[in-house]
Design a protein around this nucleic acid. Structure first.
Lengths: 344, 344
DNA sequence: CTGTTAGCGCATTCAA
DNA sequence: TTGAATGCGCTAACAG
């Protein structure tokens, strides 16, 4: 079964002795073809190795069956997980996607990328970039104006947008709550960069839990990292400098926790006896850190899959001329307790 | 500057009072347009928010400017790094790409994916799947027959194929060589799955270095893992069971090294005093393991970028009717020495 | 420098 | 059940 993309519907028609129309009907599984000619045509198709030209079909049908996905690097576990979910689900639904990766907030590249995606007739865009800048908001408004569905991952919900988000706030709350239950009181936080919505939400959850427990002096318990192990190390030092009596820390991702472990060892602090630690993400290695890391597991694969489902529905509604009501879909994270947060 | 994909070249032509041909000339930056009409047309274009339909253009030109990329999950550092390089370089060259991800060797999905890519008129395919099965070889032969360029990442070179590969064998050699220099003698290896070409190559490098040093009994020093930290833990136990006198281990990726560290601690073995360890990959966290991990750094981003360059050249040659001589491009890994392999 | 004609590969009318 | 004509949006080849 040799595929050959130079063979067109015409060649098949000629070889089968029917019109191109009939070929079109066969390859689209239309009912109005006699069983006889259908099988005959099908044989010719496989013999010639004919493969329909999707570009031509898209042009003629006005549907590309293609999505645009804009991501933010591939360096974060959450991002790649979401992308995995996007790939799986779009494949399942017969959609292809064009992937563009940002590695910082380059305004002009964003413009260029969106133009390119629109030019390539994508039917929808999944915006999987942490944080958001006003410039993109303009562009997305335009996209919405021309009826191009957009689904945002992990973004603050605003009017008329579809957002699929991990409940990061809940995650932060669960982590802190757990440390409180274990008897820790001076619980610091090493946040992610505040340009990330997710980072802000995790901080909110921590804050909420601390306040509920009647704990204060929160500003002295807070430090900002950049997700890297290095920044976790720097962060814990900064935290201890501000609050020497700190007894636990909610570290907003697992990599930074690794830096915290490293620093703690160097300072002769025992985790979890002297310092309780809870991370965030549950990367596969977290169970192999020393000590094993308690963390918040987020199922970002599901997140990506839901995003595709949503955009697909939105496209469908738009096709059918129906109204699509954008909404927020929340995915819930889960606490995983290991050794780094439980005193013996 | 509102983009609008419903506006066509005709609308622009009408609004500007010229023929569609002139519009085409302007958007393609052809010289044969008077400066006067050019600026006039350009104004109309921005006013209307016209964006060319790339699908129509591709159909008419017979060039899609699109690549197909087939990867293998997003769970491995090497894979995502290569994908990053692919994205960057293809963006740089004005190419878009369709991404398909395999998560195991599903024969029928591969068929389906290739069909889809060919149907979507990709101009080339980058095959970034570890190992290779005969089935795909058939398909790729077909692709070659119809003149569709393919570039393989990290695969055994065979006749008439373009391969871009990390020199994994050299990496294994460097790692083992380093351990030998540090005075270790019974150096085991925890390999990756042998279905991976990369895994086999790393083993070869280890074997070569050991043999050069006149060391033998290699089969009792060898164990196969699956890249996970868990399998590193299992692996080191198995290795010690076979060869209790083992004094070092070359672990074929950094995650498995983490499992080895974990197991060593539990058994009361000190790394690097009792057990020297060198990993492979140099993931960002490796410098934060305890102890910090000596490892082989592979620059897979470059690998991906080179793959795109190669395929681009190949496409160009094919366009121009020239001969393209497929070749192997080797990228060299580098030894990074940290604490896990240097006795105090 | 500009416009006309034709066609890329397919699908959607409408007839027969 | 099948075919002919027409168009999707754009570009190439030719005229003028």
């Amino acid at each position: 079964m040799a595929l050959n993309h130079k063979i067109t519907i015409k060649d098949v028609a000629k070889a089968a002795g029917v019109s191109t129309q009939t070929i079109s009907r066969v390859i689209n599984n239309r009912p109005d073809v006699s069983p006889d000619t259908r099988t005959r045509v099908q044989k010719v198709i496989t013999d010639l190795g004919y493969a329909p030209n999707v570009l031509a079909r898209s042009l003629s049908r006005g549907r590309s069956n293609t999505l645009g996905v804009i991501g933010f690097g591939l360096g974060y576990y959450g991002s790649t997980s979401a992308l995995t979910g996007i790939e799986q689900k779009s494949n399942e639904l017969g959609l292809s996607f064009l992937l563009s990766l940002l590695d910082r907030f380059e305004t002009d590249r964003i413009d260029e990328i969106i133009r390119n995606l629109i030019s390539r007739q994508v039917e929808g865009i999944i915006w999987a970039v942490p944080g958001i800048n006003d410039y993109f908001l303009d562009l997305s408004q335009t996209a919405l104006d021309i009826g191009l569905p957009i689904v945002y991952l992990n973004k603050e919900k605003t009017e008329n947008e579809t957002v699929v988000a991990m409940d990061n706030r809940l995650g932060g709350y669960l982590a802190t709550q757990h440390l409180l239950e274990q008897g820790y009181r001076r619980i610091g936080i090493i946040c992610g960069p505040f340009t990330w919505w997710e980072a802000k939400q995790r901080e909110l959850g921590w804050r909420e839990a601390m306040q509920e427990a009647g704990l204060d002096d929160l500003e002295n318990l807070k430090v900002e990292g950049d997700w890297s192990a290095a920044s976790g190390e720097v962060g814990i030092h900064a935290l201890i400098a501000k609050s020497p009596d700190i007894d636990a820390v909610f570290v907003c991702n697992d990599q930074m926790s690794l830096g915290v472990f490293q620093a703690a060892r160097r300072m002769g602090l025992n985790v979890p006896q002297d310092l309780g630690v809870v991370g965030f993400d549950d990367i596969p290695e977290a169970a192999y850190f020393y000590p094993t890391l308690s963390t918040i597991r987020q199922n970002a694969v599901t997140l990506g899959a839901i995003a595709v489902e949503q955009i697909s529905k939105s496209i469908q509604a738009h096709q059918d001329g129906e109204e699509f009501y954008p909404d927020v879909c929340w995915v819930e994270p889960r606490l995983i307790v290991r050794k780094s947060s439980v005193r013996e």
